[in-house]
Design a protein around this nucleic acid. Structure first.
Length: 902
RNA sequence: GGGAUGUUAGCUCAGUUGGUUUAGAGCGCUUGCUUCACACGCAAGAGGUCACUGGUUCGAAUCCAGUACGUCCCACCA
């Protein structure tokens, strides 16, 4: 039923009508803006920049909710809080999207120039870029939006180029031929970390390589290189050896067949040559420990251009490198009849041709992991190519030390081990990508192959003239490298570049905000991003970029599957916000997602958040609906309730501060959740409720409003919109007096003795209610309660009376027909109405209680009768056990007496 | 294959240097309740040999070893 006094306050909270309003109000008053303030302690978070063309997904929701909770609390604590937002140009992902878009328009990337492509790309970015930041506003993200940056904007590009030139001059950047992970779909090299190993069913092909009997014999000449005639199956067992491979399409690039030197089966092949099936080319038999005797047939075909191990084998044995694949994954000219066909087509075709030629012994099914590209999903080709690299050796020791010494603290700390393993084994960073969307490598080639590296064309020309001694050299005689830099080569500078720390290394912002406080990100990018930011910070600022790293988990569905577009198991966060409100979504994300743990998403969590918001809303409604009588005296129950909740509040605030100090945000949320629901609503408000129809006294209402206001403040970081709404409805406020900038409460003294006594009184309340429920008595029926000893409840009688609906609470012997209740360390008796006393039920209950107590006493006795325990245990432990024993005995005696009285 | 880490109520997790009742929370579940803030609610209740085996100790969910299963990272045998 609607409360008559609050017809204007709906009984269900509707976030939809208030969230947009308060977000606009916060922005209008500039609460999220920050500038260096020497009088305040800075608190800075730099947002991990989402992909510029991305849209909000559940992972962003979790990540940004955490950041917003941290930043809002810091702001309320009076720190100069700054949360910097921005977007990442995400070269591979974005370029792929632009290419796809152009394809739809019938435009092929190969038909247009770099400049034209970039024009399209920027147009796309301007149209779709930054949508995600607008979506974050719906979540309540309190970023200083005036400071929003983009990794490819001119100033940040300048920083990237500056860093490249700097590193080049320091000798840390080099260009070299390396085996890289080639993505034939994206046609670019990708980093080791961008490679995902996937278990896939594969086939193992067993091919026959003919043994060439005479190294310079006639047979090879007779057959000739151009012979189309396949080798036939009339080979006797001694004239061929069988090689197992999963990649028959690369046989034309084989340069040797390798055996383990200890393998008796193949020793006779020493110095001999083998013939590649179908192609007839002769290759040497070589011997190397690398080959496993017990895998396959013990014979390994060596294809240096297409396998990293083979490549290293080739280096050891001075073998040539034959590249059989084009950049797009089709066979090169060396593939002969197969040239131009896709590698997987060729695999099937070659298998078929081999079979027809009798050179395919068998095909086995075989499960193995295949490297795929994180971005395009294509199967990776190991490929030799000319790339730019950054040496890691000069940086690793210091970057490792920063984390191991907790100068940068990882939360949870279990990630330290992972970090160490990676950093110790770190390899040089391949920083070039064969793409157009990104920062173009500022290296320029002269006609004679010499290289100059400079931030701008003009500077490059100056350098080149100096280098060549030719003052008339023109820019068109320089050719800039076509590749762009890896996206991470701009993101690793993010905590510095967002404050223009490269452009102007001594500016007020960077000096004030750097190093930042917390970084909130996913463990998956600990290496590509976090580790490299630490390196960049140490290299250019001489200080790590952040003090704490909060590593979030992955948002999964209820079955534990990662949320993904293709599975269709991810809800649209904006739909959730529209349906349940941002506050509900925020709390839903934080329930049960401790740092580093995956979040098993279930809409129930969001509903729980919504229910909680509604609970708080109704607490406010109750308060607002009361008639006040300023002259009425405060009732005992209300006075006690105030004393208790005040202590409880202080206790909770202390707990909250501890939770936050350890980045236990789920626990912090649970602390305020229980404080609000159980303590404030279920206990405090019930205690101060005036009798039916009566007004509340002014003192109690004022205190209750004060408590609610404090509650709003500790709840604000979690539920910013609702708390702001109630804040303004609760009392008239000055223009800038907003909950979002209200001071964070500080814990006061807590009378734990009083809290303990009160808890015991609540135990009595629960026991009485239990009896009512067991007897099916209405909670509206007032019953007399008799306590054997009044000490335990002394002064708290009003609490028991109010909450348990006890008509009179007296001290004395239990009257006949009263049901015994033992709770809160005292023995009581509830006087039941005529006819509701059930002797058998009582006997059963008491017997059960007695059994439990006996069992308990037994366990205590066991300890106390153990001489070694008595001799060795700490005195306070011993004392506690003795007290347990005595209390247990007393309780047992009481119960037995009650049983006898029945 | 190497290395980390985990296994506590139906689910998700706490459990701080071994000893505060015979292990806690939230959700879920069961029962009762249209009680004048809220059924997105109220009250009560049930539910666990702390994966298994062994060891250290007066005492182990907690420390040690092994086993099983899981997760993650690294390296991958064609």
């Amino acid at each position: 039923m609607e409360n008559a006094a609050t017809p204007e306050i709906p009984k269900t909270y509707s976030p939809q009508t208030v969230e947009g309003h308060w977000y606009a109000a916060w922005l209008a008053r500039g609460f999220f803006k920050s500038s260096p303030n020497p009088d305040k302690e800075p608190y800075t978070i730099v947002m991990p920049p989402p992909n510029v063309t991305g849209v909000l997904h559940m992972g962003h929701m979790l990540n940004n909710t955490i950041q917003d909770v941290l930043i809002r609390r810091a702001r309320m604590q009076g720190k100069e809080a700054l949360w910097v937002a921005g977007t990442d140009h995400a070269s591979i992902a974005t370029e792929a999207k632009v290419v796809a878009m152009l394809k739809e328009q019938g435009i092929s990337k190969r038909d247009i120039t770099r400049e034209q492509f970039l024009e399209h790309a920027f147009a796309w970015k301007d149209k779709y870029g930054g949508i995600i930041l607008e979506q974050l506003k719906k979540l309540g993200a309190s970023c200083d939006w005036d400071r929003t940056r983009f990794t490819m904007e001119p100033k940040l590009t300048e920083a990237v180029l500056k860093v490249f030139v700097d590193l080049y001059k320091k000798g840390h950047i080099y260009r070299g031929i390396r085996m890289v992970n080639w993505d034939p779909e994206g046609r670019t090299a990708i980093a080791d970390d961008e490679v995902i190993a996937k278990e896939m069913p594969m086939k193992m092909y067993y091919l026959r390589y003919e043994v060439v009997e005479e190294v310079r014999g006639e047979r090879s000449e007779v057959r000739g290189e151009d012979s189309e005639a396949p080798l036939t199956s009339d080979l006797s067992p001694l004239t061929y050896i069988t090689v197992a491979t999963s990649r028959p399409e690369t046989i034309m690039a084989d340069v040797a067949v390798c055996f383990n030197p200890t393998d008796e089966r193949y020793r006779w092949l020493k110095g001999r040559k083998l013939r590649i099936p179908l192609f007839g080319k002769e290759i040497p038999a070589i011997f190397d420990e690398y080959v496993a005797v017990d895998f396959g047939t013990g014979a390994l075909k060596v294809t240096p251009a297409h396998d990293i191990n083979d490549y290293e084998l080739g280096l050891r044995h001075n073998l040539p490198v034959i590249d059989a694949l084009n950049d797009d994954g089709t066979l090169a000219a060396v593939g002969g009849a197969y040239a131009g066909l896709d590698r997987f087509v060729v695999r099937r075709q070659i298998a078929k041709d081999l079979k027809e030629a009798g050179l395919l012994e068998k095909i086995d099914d075989y499960q193995t992991s295949v490297s795929t590209s994180e971005r395009t999903g294509a199967v990776i080709e190991p490929k030799l190519s000319l790339q730019w690299f950054l040496k890691m050796e000069p940086f690793k020791a210091q970057a490792l030390e920063a984390v191991m010494s907790d100068e940068v603290q990882l939360n949870p700390p279990k990630f330290k081990n992972m970090y160490r393993t990676w950093m110790e084994g770190v390899r040089d960073w391949c920083i070039s990508r064969q793409l157009w969307w990104g920062q173009r490598i500022p290296a320029y080639y002269l006609a004679d192959g010499q290289i100059v590296v400079a931030e701008t064309d003009a500077e490059a020309l100056v350098e080149a003239r100096k280098l060549t001694g030719n003052p008339t050299l023109q820019l068109d005689q320089l050719r800039q490298d076509d590749d762009v830099l890896d996206t991470w080569f701009s993101s690793w500078l993010w905590p510095i570049s967002v404050f223009d720390g490269f452009e102007d290394p001594n500016n007020a912002d960077i000096n004030y905000y750097y190093p930042t406080n917390d970084l909130v990100t996913a463990p998956e990018i600990l290496f590509f991003w976090v580790a490299r930011m630490i390196i960049a910070g140490q290299e250019w600022r001489g200080a790590v970029p952040f003090k704490n790293v909060y590593l979030t988990g992955i948002v999964r569905d209820a079955q534990g599957r990662k949320m993904s577009k293709s599975l269709g198991n991810s809800p649209d966060p904006l739909d959730l916000i529209a349906e349940f409100g941002a506050d509900a979504v925020r709390t839903g994300m934080l329930f049960s997602s401790p740092a580093g743990n995956d979040l098993l998403y279930d809409q129930k969590l969001i509903e729980q958040g919504r229910n909680f918001n509604n609970k708080l809303w109704n607490a406010f409604r109750l308060l607002k609906g009361w008639e006040v009588d300023g002259a009425a005296p405060q009732l005992a129950a209300a006075r006690l309730a105030g004393e208790w909740f005040g202590a409880k509040l202080h206790h909770a605030i202390g707990q909250l501060d501890a939770d936050f100090a350890e980045y236990r945000l789920s626990d912090a949320l649970m602390t305020v959740y229980k404080l609000t629901w159980d303590d404030f609503c279920s206990t405090y408000l019930e205690l101060i409720k005036p009798p039916y129809g009566a007004p509340i006294d002014g003192a109690t209402l004022a205190q209750a409003s004060g408590f609610l206001e404090t509650l709003l403040r500790v709840l604000h970081p979690f539920v910013p919109f609702l708390t702001e709404e109630i804040w303004h409805r609760l009392a008239p406020r000055a223009d800038r007096a907003y909950c979002c900038v209200a001071p964070w409460p500080t814990p006061g003294p807590v009378d734990t003795t009083f809290l303990g006594r009160f808890e015991r009184a609540l135990d009595v309340v629960q026991a009485v209610r239990n009896q009512r429920a067991a007897k099916g008595l209405s909670p509206n029926l007032s019953l007399p309660l008799v306590a054997r000893d009044g000490a335990a409840l002394a002064g708290l009688e009003a609490v028991v009376q109010k909450l348990a609906n006890v008509s009179t609470l007296t001290v004395g012997e239990a009257p006949a027909g009263a049901v015994p209740v033992v709770a809160g360390g005292t023995e009581l008796a509830l006087v039941l109405p005529e006819g509701s006393f059930d002797v058998e039920a009582e006997r059963a209950r008491l017997t059960k209680d007695i059994e439990y107590t006996r069992g308990f006493l037994l366990s205590v006795d066991k300890k106390l009768s153990n001489e070694k325990f008595v001799a060795n245990a700490k005195p306070e432990i011993l004392e506690a056990e003795r007290k347990k024993h005595a209390d247990g005995l007393a309780k047992l005696a009481q119960l037995e007496a009650q049983l006898a009285a029945l």
